[in-house]
Design a protein around this nucleic acid. Structure first.
Lengths: 352, 352
DNA sequence: CTGAAAGCGCTTACAG
DNA sequence: CTGAAAGCGCTTACAG
């Protein structure tokens, strides 16, 4: 069907009256090689006239570079959360790649720990580097790749692994949320974590909560901390527990919007009005945070920037540039809506 | 760094004591070539021992096949909507590709109409076929590719173009929504379209609305139809107009959840209780539809199946299989929640 | 500043 | 059932 003799660099060379070497030099803009402007123009012209595209396979084979990066998406328990940010992250990575004329090869993986989940991409030389979203410590391939010196950037971090990453500044984000509550007069602030404490992000968000309290002279009360588990249901349960505490908290920081939604429903089910009877702040700013009732005050994650940051870092690594900062924490932003109560007018009366 | 002499098919051949031809034959399972079981095992063994991966570039160059499909994502005005389904669609495509050992190359495109938005992928022989999401009629490249016989499958349709596609059965979905309302006693049912009528999906959803009315002996009243424009704001405006009509509709079908959210707020702002004073049904079932107040009854789109269907069709086309059904309409599903009012117990009294 | 030639690592007629 | 050899279309020392 679409056979029609392929245009090769030979055709371009002939048309321009030069060698294929020269064609390659000008089309790739090879540094350190000076081509006379006349020759350059002739080549460019010929290429355009013939509608020439260099064959990617031939190019890769000869140059040992693929001009492609792999994006490995691991289906983690945080999936719903990851899904909400995927479009932004994808756009960030895509833009960075495109700017350098790199392609993005997508690989979804059920289970990163399975033997050949994504290393075949490296073995087959399909890609020059990898962005791995949702790294896990039981992922043996990752460390192996790392040891070989293959460029890898994590979206999220793997503590102690030394693998370059870009991640959200979760500690700072949590602190932002809790400080906001403190500044508006709350002193008994409950925490519902986003996930069990073995998850890095969970531990970090708790740390931020703790820091905020301590910096403001409030004591950390273990009894005001409950564990969430990614979904709304866990938020419901956690909030139910918190409301049993005597005296109950006047505000709750739920370190995940999804968990916050469940928590919100639980509070409402007990007849509490949010924010009047209980202030609530979430974390993530998933698209629906602004639609719940009341709209949720939360911490926004920079999805696009995460993708762009990871893309930029990986591309730097691939090019052998000296990447100074291989541990990138991106700042979050407090999005004030109604659930925290500050729009209600008065801030809480200090009760002491 | 990670130089360590590459393992090639020559190494495997030597270790197995056969020629590279034979290695290629068994590793690729070339049909019509019978290799003795002994030889086959020797080769497989050697390959495993050496941890051999065939070089993708060399393979592509020699075979003229890339084993990759391109996924081109166009940033359309429906972006927010597309975003909500991207993860599912991606998973569907990824699963189909993976099953056939194909890779997925992602390309986001600002504007499909720009000259070389994605054809360079074809020119460079990066991919064997394309899935194009959000096709537009002013996309010249598409028709050109099509004419060359390059395998293309659309996600969404381009009427009259003859390009294979998989799409949602929008007409059927809209009918489902409106029939549901009719069956529960409504006779004055307003329509807020999801977008201006030049958009295919918009025209189709309106057609479904009309069909449902006519099949149930209700007359189509132009005065009960207002135009949405993708976002909530347009839904707010449209609902405001509809509520001016005398007598006003007792139910409204908003052919997009986002638009429905705006419409819902507009109705509430006028003091109407949903579903008590006005029933509302949306379309899309975006993730947040179940979280609004009241939870929105809507039409669910099969995101995963759209991706899987497009992947399967494209792979068939690439393999030169006879693809019987190149126009695939996927069924939607009615998701009954609270906004339509049927959970309120009684169905509306017929007023005639 | 430019070119001839080797080589990247496979697949695939062709021959036996 | 298996192998020798050409060829896919580039890049890249090397030479001039």
């Amino acid at each position: 069907m679409h056979a029609q003799r392929r245009v090769t660099s030979k055709d371009v060379a002939e048309r321009a009256g030069v060698s294929r070497t020269t064609v390659s030099f000008v089309l790739n803009n090879v540094p350190g090689v000076r081509i006379s402007e006349g020759t350059r123009q002739k080549v460019l012209h010929a290429a355009r006239e013939l509608n020439y595209y260099p064959n990617a396979a031939a190019r890769s084979l000869a140059s040992r570079k693929t001009r492609r990066i792999g994006l490995v998406l691991c289906q983690s328990p945080e999936r719903i959360f990851v899904d909400a940010f995927l479009p932004g992250v994808l756009r960030g990575i895509g833009d960075m790649a495109q700017a350098q004329e790199f392609g993005v090869l997508l690989q979804s993986v059920e289970n990163v720990a399975q033997p050949d989940a994504y290393t075949h991409l490296v073995g087959e030389k399909q890609i020059d580097g990898i962005i791995l979203s949702g790294p896990r410590s039981d992922d043996g391939q990752l460390l192996a790749l790392r040891k070989e010196g293959f460029p890898v950037v994590l979206l999220g971090q793997l503590e102690g692994s030394g693998v370059p990453f870009v991640d959200v500044d979760s500690v700072g984000g949590a602190r932002l949320a809790v400080e906001h509550l403190i500044e508006h007069g709350h002193e008994r602030i409950g925490l519902i974590t986003n996930a069990p404490p073995q998850y890095t992000a969970s531990a970090q968000r708790e740390r931020g909560y703790r820091q905020a309290l301590e910096e403001h002279g409030l004591t950390y009360d273990r009894g005001l901390v409950c564990c969430g588990d990614f979904n709304e249901e866990s938020g419901w349960r956690a909030m139910s527990e918190l409301l049993e505490v005597v005296p109950p908290p006047t505000a709750v920081f739920a370190a995940s919007d999804l968990v916050a939604f469940g928590a919100m429903e639980a509070a409402k089910a007990r007849g509490l009005k949010i924010p009047h009877d209980l202030a609530l702040v979430g974390f993530d700013d998933v698209p629906l945070a602004r639609y719940v009732d009341p709209p949720l005050t939360t911490i926004r994650l920079p999805a696009y920037e995460l993708g762009a940051g990871a893309g930029r870092m990986l591309l730097g690594l691939i090019k052998g540039e000296e990447v100074k900062d291989t541990q990138l924490f991106l700042e979050t932003e407090l999005v004030v809506r109604d659930s925290c109560g500050i729009h209600e007018g008065a801030t809480l009366e200090r009760s002491v």
